[in-house]
């Protein structure tokens, strides 16, 4: 049956997109869970990272997947600096200030991108972008498979850092009990900056994985940040396993929704779920926990 094959194809595609959405959302949920900040700059930082990858490929001739470690390091420092020198200083610990600072940072980045790189939509041209892998029931582009595998690997790595390392323990301690964390000698401001750095580093990886299957323009951040916020709420704010499950679910709903309703309406399902969650289970599918 042809239609069953197409359905299977859209399920697989959905899960693969979902893993990358989860990566974007993981950064956001980590930042929310530890710093209790709604980071409106998250999408714009992703956009900047995507341009970074784009120019690394087009100007320097580097393979997009090779840029991952470099982009992660660069984005780590961008996030670290944003928290330490901008939000930490100007925010003065007030939620309203912090909200406006991240929103302001997003506006600045979006418009700077528009000014520097124009509003043109740009896409990579690479010879392996047309290559597909036959999974038996579906033909899947290599680029999507790489994105899926790499996103899952990064997710596992992040989970191990949070659950098994001293730094991860410190992060979880700071998330719930910053005063107690200072009592034991944790430099809380530093952990905040490092968490912001790691959450932003996720975007460096996501950018490199997304660019070969997507495109970049100065508004691209909004597309993903809206999805990421949905995923974060779906998976319980601050819960990174929830971000993965939420991401896969959103990817699935988008893709299968597209199969039944057509591409233009594919995202409707996501927001229907979002509204249902907010109405009946506002704490999300899981319990909040970094």
């Amino acid at each position: 049956m042809l239609s069953l094959e197409i359905l299977l194809h859209s399920v697989v595609t959905g899960l693969m997109n979902g893993a990358v959405y989860a990566l974007v959302a993981m950064g956001l949920t980590l930042i929310f869970g530890v710093l209790h900040i709604i980071n409106f700059a998250h999408g714009s930082l992703l956009m900047v990272a995507m341009y970074g990858v784009f120019f690394a490929v087009t100007l320097l001739g580097i393979d997009p997947y090779v840029t991952i470690p470099f982009m992660m390091v660069l984005m780590y420092f961008a996030g670290y600096g944003l928290q330490r020198y901008v939000i930490g200083n100007a925010g003065q610990g007030r939620d309203t200030n912090i909200l406006l600072i991240t929103l302001g940072a997003a506006v600045v980045m979006d418009n700077l991108a528009l000014y520097l790189w124009t509003g043109d939509t740009r896409q990579l041209q690479l010879d392996y972008m047309m290559a597909v892998v036959d999974l038996g029931f579906a033909l899947i582009p290599v680029t999507r498979i790489i994105a899926f595998v790499a996103a899952c690997a990064l997710f596992v790595a992040m989970w191990l850092v949070i659950e098994r390392t001293d730094f991860g323990r410190a992060m979880r301690a700071v998330a719930k009990e910053p005063f107690g964390a200072r009592v034991v000698g944790i430099d809380v401001d530093r952990v905040y900056a490092q968490t912001m750095g790691i959450g932003t580093a996720c975007l460096g990886a996501a950018a490199a994985l997304l660019l070969p299957i997507f495109y970049v323009n100065p508004q691209i951040g909004n597309v993903f940040v809206l999805l990421a916020f949905t995923i974060v709420v779906l998976g319980s704010m601050g819960n990174i396993v929830g971000a993965l499950v939420g991401g896969l679910l959103v990817g699935l709903v988008e893709s299968v929704g597209g199969f039944f309703l057509g591409d233009r309406l594919g995202q409707v399902g996501i927001f229907v779920i979002f509204i249902l969650i907010l109405t009946f289970r506002p704490q999300g599918l899981f319990s909040a926990r970094v």
Binding site: D166, R169, A170, R172, A173, A175, K176, E177, F179, G180, A181, V183, V184, I186, R289, V290
Partner: peptide, 15 residues
Amino acid sequence: RRIFPNLSVQENLTL
């Protein structure tokens, strides 16, 4: 007390 409620007893001590 200000212990870390979301961490295990042993993790609290480790920290």
